[in-house]
Design a protein around this nucleic acid. Structure first.
Lengths: 242, 242
DNA sequence: TCAGTTCATATAGCAACGCTATAGGTGCTA
DNA sequence: TAGCACCTATAGCGTTGCTATATGAACTGA
């Protein structure tokens, strides 16, 4: 049982590490296990990745590329909020399919290590939310909405991973998902509710225009005018007043 | 620098482990560090805790007791949903105060290891939500609401921990918190209803904003600013660009 | 054609790790 | 005092992440 073959040692190391990590159930994976499965010797690992952590980072990076590919791999439905739902579900599914990898990616993030992945994931969702904002469907900045939705998405996925497969209840995901989307969407918020921010139509419209302006390079204003215009727009759209 | 003193070795081990863990920044903490700081020898650790992990579990258990105490340590305000808000904020604060401990407790939970803590935390929140349900303020089962809110709470806390202290923005917490509470509260939540006209453009958004701005006197801009702003808006909204 | 250089892998081994076999010291009860 | 349970220490085992050093292959320029 080894990953011998025609692949270069670097690839074999990556695959061996990924495989062992995926089946480790949280137990530490030793470099000796990895190099043996890959069919190479210890220094080869350190030549290519510098470090055990360097190798694991590479595994995580590969996993993240897969994640991003999955998040982009569906045709926009034309309904941005519906696409957000699919991004959410895709995120959860990724976590449940590769729990160990997911735990490293999102369960163990420390300020000094890799918020880069989080930032990228946020950008991915923000991108999609920009379309929703342009369609006047958001009542908060796409950026803030993306951060909030992603945070909840991560929390739900971790909770589901923590549960045994038997008792896993995906309703937790759909319920939280719809709650978050509903909370940031500009649908009839039915009046100033308890604690919720009933944003005025001015704010919603400003957010929409802001997103639309940045998406389509309109040449109706000069660059300096546009800059000032956007600043005012920002001032309006971040105000809480009605 | 040692934790010598009149405390029994078991306590000294617990404190040493907690202290080293808290300052480890994610780096592994060795049993030799712990026993040296505690002023005992290796077998003492294994006599009392059986295992390195057993010791760490004890640290986590102590941390969790502190967490529970914090969650219970405020008088009910009489408004259950307000109490839920305070529980949420307290949870976030606990995580930010003891990030390493929190990451072990909620960032690394695996099905085989310790969902017990999660279950307890859920019960804690469910208990509070029962009061809200009794007051007719919930539109879902307290159990489901607790799971959902806690999941989002964990996700937000992890995200905030991942950010450097400088760029930490607690608005992510309050926004997500209120979104979740609003979603489970008995307001006419009527469901998502996604789907407005996918058609949008700068022009449409500008027209909407223009109308909204003139209808409601926003005081975010001075009158002269507003005049210029509206002029630019007009220029955009009458353009043919999409 | 062949010395020089660079890249990639291997042999062997170090310091530190988690953990334990074994034994010694304490404080009880009798 | 004997016996016993409890707690702690000395010393050392096997494994870990990692590296000093050496070897082989592939390419370069003259």
């Amino acid at each position: 049982m080894s990953l011998d073959g025609q692949l270069p040692p670097k690839m074999r190391l990556l695959r061996a590490a990924a495989e062992l990590l995926a089946n480790s159930a949280g137990a530490p994976v030793s470099t000796r296990q990895i190099t043996q499965l890959a069919g190479v010797s210890a220094p080869t690992l350190y030549h290519h990745f510098g470090d055990k952590e360097g190798l694991f980072d590479a595994v995580v990076a590969a996993g993240f590329e897969e994640y991003v590919a999955g998040e982009r791999d569906f045709a926009p439905s034309g309904q941005p909020l519906e696409d957000i739902r699919r991004m959410w579900d895709n995120h959860v599914q990724f976590g449940l399919n590769q729990p160990e990898l997911y735990l490293v990616m999102f369960g163990n993030i420390r300020p000094e290590s890799r918020p880069a992945i989080v930032a990228d994931a946020e950008s991915l969702m923000e991108e999609m939310l920009n379309k929703a904002a342009a369609a006047g469907q958001l009542n908060v900045q796409p950026r803030e909405a993306a951060r909030s939705i992603l945070a909840a998405n991560v929390g739900v996925t971790l909770m589901l991973i923590a549960e045994s497969v038997a008792e896993r209840n995906l309703e937790l995901s759909t319920m939280t998902r719809d709650a978050m989307i509903f909370a940031v969407s500009a649908e009839p918020a039915s009046g100033p509710a308890a604690g919720s921010t009933g944003k005025s139509s001015v704010v919603v419209a400003a957010i929409a225009l802001n997103a639309a302006l940045q998406a389509s390079h309109s040449d109706q204003l000069s660059s300096s005018e546009l800059k000032l215009f956007l600043e005012w727009l920002h001032r309006i759209s971040t105000s809480t007043a009605g």
